[in-house]
Design a protein around this nucleic acid. Structure first.
Lengths: 399, 399
DNA sequence: CTGTTAGCGCTTTCAC
DNA sequence: GTGAAAGCGCTAACAG
C-alpha cells in the first residue's frame, strides 16, 4: 500500500474581474457595420464581440471582398499598396478567415480524421503523433477521436468526422470483421486507411505489423533457448492483433512439438499473480512466459518478482510490444518491438497518396489499394535468457 | 547494445482493385440533380460521388428543406409518416449533414481546441483523454494539436483552431510570460483556459498543479530522512512548472540550512551518467537526488544502476511526476504524483462553465476567472529510503 | 405540420 | 488590378 501524505484537494481562488470591462464594442465603421448577431443582443453586454468577417475587412479597407479574399490567399494579383492596406486592416481587426465558409464552397477541408482506441495508450499516441506530423506536412489538421474499442463509439466517431467533412480517415477498427463498419466505410466519400488492424474483405488500404511472424519468431527464440513449456499469456483475445500473435505462438510451438498453452485471463496484476502462482504450483510448471501485450508483460513481470521467481533462471519472460522501461528494469525485459512511428507515418502517407491521387485523377499506381505489413524486431534483453553485450548502452535511445 | 534480429523492412502488396468499379453514379432524381461539382468532371470517372446534400434528400423525399432540417435535428414538428419517409431517404443516400454549413449559420461548432506540447507525452495525453471525455459529455469534439513547446507553432495552432471556429480553447503555453501569446489570447473571441501552466498577467483561467508545494514537500521529506546533500536534477529550466519545482526545492533546502545544488544538464542518459558520476567522485558527493521530471528521473535511475550505486543506501532518489513502472522496478521509485486526469477534467469543465455561462448571459458566479491549483501527493516507495508496507499491492492500480 | 425564403462568410467567374 | 454577384448546404423566421 502506498502512503498518501498530502491530501488531494482543490483550491479555487476567485478573482472578481470585471466581466464588463472586457467589452470592447467596436463601431468605427460605416452605417451598416452593426448588424445581425451584434444587433440581436443590444442591451446584454457581451464578453467578446463576434469575430470580424471578410466583408468587414473589405469595408474598412475600402476594397471589395474579392480583393480581401485574394490577400488572405497569398496576395497574388493585388497591387502592393492595396495589399499592404488590407493586411493592416486584417491585423488591426484580428481577422481570421472562417474555415466553415471556405469548406462550404467545396474546397478541401484540409483535415483528416484518426480514430483510435485511446489517446492515452502509448502505442496509439505515438502513431497519432507521427500521423500528425505527416498531416502538418500536407498542411492538414489531424482530428483524433477515441473509440475505446467500442464498435458503437467507432461508428459514432465516423459520423462526427464525416459531418466535419474530413478529407480522409484513418481508423484502427475495434473488430476487423465488423460488417456494419466495413459497409459504412465503403460508402464513405473519402479515402480510408486502416491502421494496426485491417478491415477484412474490403478494398480498404491498411498498415499493420506482422504480428504473426513477430510472435512466431519470438516463440522460436524461446524454443532455441531450450525452453520446453512455454505459456502464452494475454488478457484479450478478440483483437485482430492478439489473435495473430496467438497464431504465431501456436505455429512455433506446434512445429516444435511443444505443448500449446494459452491463458487469456490476465486482466490485471491480481489475475497475473494468481495465474502464474497456480501454474508454478501445478504439475507442469512453465519454464517460459510469452506475453502478448504491454500491460500483460508488466503484470507478469511484477508477479514473477513478487513470487520471488528468478527470471530468466526459473522462468523466462518475453513480451510483445516494447515499452520505455523495459530496458531499465532488472532483469531487463526482452520484447518484440513494433515500428510504432513508422506505422503512423506510413498510414498517413498512404492516405495522402490517395488524396493526392484522386485530386489529380491519377492513373495506374495510385489507383491500387495497398496492404502494407511492417516487420517487427526482437529486442534481446535479459529476461529471455540472453545476455546483452552492454546492459545500459541502449539507454540513450528513448530520450 | 541491443541485438537486432529481424531486419526492419516493408512489404507492399498491391492489389489491383478496379478503381472504376467502385463508382456508383447515382442519378435517380429530377432534372437538376446533376449539378456543380458533379458536372465539372463529366468524363473522368470518380472514385466516389460527392456527398448528398440536404436538398437532395428533400427532393427525393418530396418534401421541403425545412422538413429535412427538422428531421435531422430531432424530428420535432414533423408528422410520423413524413419523418419515416425522410429518414428512409437519408439512410438510402447515406446523407450526413454538412457541419460547415451549420457552423456558417452561426450556431456553435461544438468543437473545442487543445494545444499541448506533445500527444506522445503520457502526462498530456492523459490530460487530453480526460478533457475529451468532458467534451463528449458536452456533445463536443476535442481537436488536439501539438506545439512541441515552440511559441511559433503555438501561435500557428491558435490560428488554425480559430479558423476552425472552435467554441473554446485549452492551452498549455510554452512560455507563461509570452506577451504576444497573451495578447493574442486576450483578443480571441472565445473563452480560453490554460492547462498545467498559467498565462501571467492575464485574466485567463488556469488549472495547474501546485508544483512549488509539491517540490518543497518532497525535498522536506528527503531532509526528514536525514539526507544532507540533496542535489536537484533537471534538463530544462525555462518551463513554468520546472521553475516552480526548483523554487520549491530551494525553499526547502534553504530553510533547512542545507546546500542548494541545481544541475540542469540532464538531457539524456549519457548526461545523467556523466553528471552523477562526476558528483559522486567529487568532494561533496550527494546523498540524495531530487529529479524534476519524468525522463530525468529515469535517466538518473538508470545511471545509478549502471554505476552500481546502492539506492537508497548510498544515494536516495525522489522524482517529480509518477510513471507507470515506478512501482515495478527494484527499488521502486518514490515520486511526487500529480492528479493528471483531474487536471484535464477540471480544465475542460472550467471551459464549458465559461461556454455555458456566456451562452445564458449568466450573472455573478460564472463571470469570474478562476485560477485552480491542484495538490500533489507524495508516493512513498523505496528509493527515498521509505519502506512501503507491501511492495506489490499498489500494482492493481494502474491496470 | 409544412414550404418559401433570406442569408451565414467565403470563393469564384466574369466584367470592368 | 479590382469588384459585383452568384451561390456552397444549412437554419430560422415567417407564412400557409
Amino acid at each position: 500500500m502506498e502512503l498518501e501524505i498530502a491530501h488531494l484537494c482543490v483550491l479555487v481562488h476567485l478573482y472578481d474581474l470585471s466581466w464588463n470591462s472586457a467589452v470592447v464594442y467596436i463601431t468605427m465603421a460605416g452605417i451598416d457595420s452593426c448588424y445581425r448577431s451584434r444587433i440581436k443582443r443590444p442591451t446584454k453586454m457581451q464578453k467578446r464581440s463576434p469575430p470580424p468577417t471578410l466583408s468587414e475587412v473589405a469595408r474598412k479597407a475600402g476594397v471589395g471582398t474579392t480583393t480581401v479574399s485574394r490577400v488572405i490567399n497569398g496576395g497574388d494579383r493585388v497591387s502592393p499598396m492595396t495589399l499592404a492596406r488590407v493586411r493592416r486592416v486584417i491585423e488591426a481587426l484580428g481577422y481570421m478567415p472562417n474555415q466553415a465558409a471556405r469548406v462550404l464552397k467545396g474546397v478541401r477541408t484540409n483535415t483528416i480524421g484518426l480514430i483510435i482506441p485511446s489517446i492515452a495508450d502509448p502505442f496509439f499516441s505515438s502513431c497519432a503523433e507521427a500521423a500528425q506530423a505527416v498531416a502538418r506536412a500536407h498542411d492538414s489538421l489531424l482530428i483524433v477521436t477515441t473509440s475505446h474499442n467500442d464498435p458503437h463509439a467507432e461508428i459514432e466517431n465516423i459520423h462526427i468526422l464525416t459531418r466535419h467533412r474530413v478529407d480522409g480517415l484513418i481508423i484502427a477498427p475495434a473488430n476487423s470483421q465488423n460488417q456494419t463498419l466495413r459497409d459504412l466505410l465503403d460508402r464513405l466519400s473519402v479515402p480510408v486507411v486502416a491502421i494496426d488492424r485491417p478491415i477484412s474483405n474490403s478494398s480498404i488500404a491498411s498498415v499493420v505489423t506482422d504480428n504473426f511472424k513477430g510472435a512466431r519468431f519470438a516463440t522460436r527464440h524461446l524454443i532455441d533457448h531450450g525452453y520446453k513449456r512455454i505459456v502464452c499469456l494475454t488478457g484479450e483475445s478478440t483483437l485482430f492483433t492478439i489473435q495473430e500473435r496467438i497464431r504465431g505462438y501456436r505455429a512455433a510451438v506446434e512445429s516444435a512439438g511443444i505443448p500449446y498453452t494459452l491463458d487469456t485471463s490476465i486482466k490485471d496484476y491480481k489475475s497475473a499473480e494468481y495465474s502464474i502462482e497456480s501454474m508454478l504450483a501445478g504439475a507442469n510448471p512453465p519454464d517460459a512466459l510469452f506475453t502478448l501485450k504491454n500491460s500483460t508483460t508488466i503484470f507478469a513481470y511484477e508477479a514473477l518478482q513478487k513470487l520471488n521467481v528468478r527470471v530468466p533462471k526459473s522462468v523466462a519472460l518475453l513480451g510483445f510490444d516494447d515499452f520505455e522501461l523495459a530496458s531499465a528494469v532488472r532483469p531487463s525485459i526482452s520484447v518484440v518491438q513494433q515500428p510504432v512511428e513508422e506505422i503512423g507515418r506510413v498510414t498517413a502517407e498512404l492516405l495522402f497518396d490517395q488524396l493526392l491521387g484522386s485530386r489529380n485523377g491519377l492513373p495506374a499506381h495510385s489507383k491500387r489499394t495497398r496492404q502494407v505489413t511492417l516487420e517487427t524486431r526482437l529486442i534481446q534483453r535479459s529476461s529471455c535468457g540472453c545476455t546483452p553485450a552492454s546492459v545500459s548502452s541502449d539507454k540513450a535511445g528513448p530520450s
